[in-house]
C-alpha cells in the first residue's frame, strides 16, 4: 500500500522525460494589494498529468493564468526550457486552455469554434476545417460539426472546448476546473474520455480542481496548495497504473490515495 503512494518533497527523481516548464518563486500581487500566490515552485515534464488541488481562493486559477501568459508574475520566473523564443526573447508558449465554462462563441458552429485557434494562427481555412473535424471526432462529437453551442448539452459544450484546446496539438494543456459545473455522471464520463485522449496524444496536462477524488483519479502527481497567501504545500505522486477505469475508483489504492491527499488538503485549510 505505501508503494502506491509517496510524497516527494522536493521532487528529486531524475526523469528521462524532457522538462516543459520550470516555475521558481512565482508570486502575484494584484493591484488592490491582494497577494494571490507566493513562492510557487513547479516543474512539469513532457507527457505528465499533474493536478493543482486546493481550497477556493488559493490562487490555483491565478497560477494557471500566469503560466498561460495571461498576466505577468510580480516576482519569480516561469521558464520554458524546451520552447522556442521569439525575437524579443519571449517564450512562444504552446498551450491550450480550457476554462471552467465552455466559453464558446455562440454565433459559431462547433466546427467554427474549434477552427478558431488555427484561423488566428493563419492556417488555411480548408486545412483548419479538416483539423477541427478530426479534433471534434476525437472528443466524440463527429456528428455535431454544424451544431451551434445552444443546441448542445453542458457536457458536449465542454467537449467542444477541449477539442478547441487540443486542435493546435499544444505541448501543455491547461484546464481550469473544467468539469466543476457538470453533473457527476457526465463528469466521470469526461474524466475517462480525457484520460483516453491523453493516453493517445501524450500532451502534458496541468489540471486545476478542488475535488480530491477527481485529482486522484486523473493525475500522476497532485500539487496541493493552501490559501491566503496561495502557496504550494505538498507534491504527492500516485503510482497507480494507467489506463484507469471504473475499477480503479473502488480499489484500495484509490481509497488510500484519496485519504493521503485529503489529509494534505486539510493541512492546507487549517494552516
Amino acid at each position: 500500500m505505501p508503494a502506491a503512494l509517496r510524497a516527494i518533497e522536493p521532487a528529486v527523481e531524475a526523469s528521462p522525460a524532457r522538462p516543459v516548464l520550470h516555475a521558481r518563486g512565482v508570486a502575484k500581487r494584484f493591484s488592490n494589494g491582494t497577494l494571490a500566490v507566493t513562492g510557487v515552485d513547479l516543474d512539469l515534464r513532457a507527457g505528465e498529468f499533474v493536478s493543482l488541488l486546493g481550497p477556493s481562493g488559493c490562487g490555483k486559477s491565478t497560477l494557471l493564468r500566469l503560466i498561460a501568459g495571461l498576466g505577468e508574475a510580480s516576482a519569480g520566473r516561469i521558464d520554458w526550457p524546451t520552447t522556442d523564443h521569439d525575437s524579443h526573447g519571449r517564450p512562444m508558449r504552446d498551450v491550450g486552455f480550457v476554462f471552467q465554462e465552455a466559453t464558446l462563441m455562440p454565433w459559431a458552429t462547433a466546427q467554427r469554434n474549434v477552427m478558431l485557434p488555427l484561423i488566428l494562427k493563419r492556417v488555411p481555412a480548408k486545412e483548419a476545417a479538416a483539423r477541427a473535424d478530426a479534433a471534434l471526432e476525437a472528443v466524440g462529437l463527429g456528428s455535431f460539426l454544424q451544431a451551434y453551442p445552444r443546441e448542445l448539452s453542458g457536457g458536449m459544450k465542454m467537449r467542444v472546448s477541449i477539442a478547441r484546446a487540443l486542435v493546435t496539438r499544444p505541448r501543455l494543456l491547461l484546464m481550469d476546473e473544467p468539469f466543476a459545473a457538470l453533473d457527476e455522471i457526465t463528469r466521470q464520463k469526461l474524466n475517462d474520455d480525457l484520460l483516453a485522449l491523453w493516453a493517445r496524444q501524450r500532451f502534458t496536462v496541468l489540471f486545476v480542481t478542488h475535488s480530491v477524488f477527481e485529482s486522484v483519479y486523473l493525475s500522476q502527481r497532485i500539487v496541493v496548495m493552501a490559501a491566503r497567501p496561495g502557496r504550494v504545500i505538498a507534491d504527492v505522486a500516485t503510482d497507480a497504473p494507467f489506463p484507469r477505469d471504473a475499477s480503479f475508483r473502488i480499489s484500495p489504492e484509490y481509497a488510500a490515495a484519496c485519504r493521503t491527499v485529503s489529509a494534505k488538503l486539510h493541512e492546507a485549510i487549517v494552516s
Binding site: 493564468r65 498561460a68 501568459g69 495571461l70 498551450v95 486552455f97 478558431l116 488566428l120 494562427k121
Partner: peptide
C-alpha cells in the same frame, strides 16, 4: 483572454 492566448 482566449484570443490573447493565441496571440490574436
Amino acid at each position: 483572454n482566449l484570443f490573447q492566448l493565441y496571440g490574436a
